[in-house]
Amino acid sequence: MVTYAVALIGSVILFFLSHHHTIITNVKQLNIASVTMGLAIIFIEFGYILCYKAGWSAGTTAVTVNMTMTIILIPIVILVFHQGFTVRNAIGVLLAIVSLVLMNS
């Protein structure tokens, strides 16, 4: 909890140092994407905690989680945001899958 409290305090400080708008103005501009992203971050961090408790290595957990998240998000990005998927992207996904297999075997 201390880690997240420090992150919150740091985020508030950075907000005041980098924004010219008031908090009220920014709160009025909030949308569901901000809330959804916050929830996603909570679940990702919870996943890290579970991985570490299960004995995963700190050196490979972050890479594994990030690559897996990227691979999982590809269909969502294609279907929801209508972004293209090229041969180059497919090669990247295949390389990511191969590296996940090699790293975790």
Rank of each mutant, 00 (worst) to 15 (best):
C51D: 08
K53Y: 07
S105D: 06
A40M: 07
V77N: 13
M67G: 00
V93Y: 01
T64E: 04
L94W: 08
A5H: 10
N89L: 03
N104K: 07
G84H: 07
L30G: 10
Q29G: 05
T68I: 01
I13S: 01
Q29S: 13
N89K: 05
L8V: 12
T36E: 06
L17E: 05
Q83A: 12
F46G: 03
C51T: 10
L95C: 13
L102Y: 13
S11E: 11
I97R: 01
L102Q: 12
S11F: 14
T61H: 02
A5S: 14
V101Q: 03
A7H: 11
V93M: 12
L95K: 05
K28S: 04
A5E: 13
M1T: 07
V80C: 10
I74L: 14
F15P: 00
V80G: 03
W56M: 14
T70E: 07
K28R: 09
L8M: 09
V6A: 15
I78V: 15
V6Q: 13
Q83M: 12
A40N: 05
F85H: 01
S34R: 07
T61E: 09
A54D: 04
G59M: 07
G59Q: 09
G38T: 09
H20G: 14
E45V: 06
M103P: 00
V93H: 03
V63Q: 02
N31D: 08
V80Y: 11
I78R: 06
I32D: 10
P75L: 13
M1E: 06
F15H: 00
I97E: 01
I42Y: 05
A5G: 08
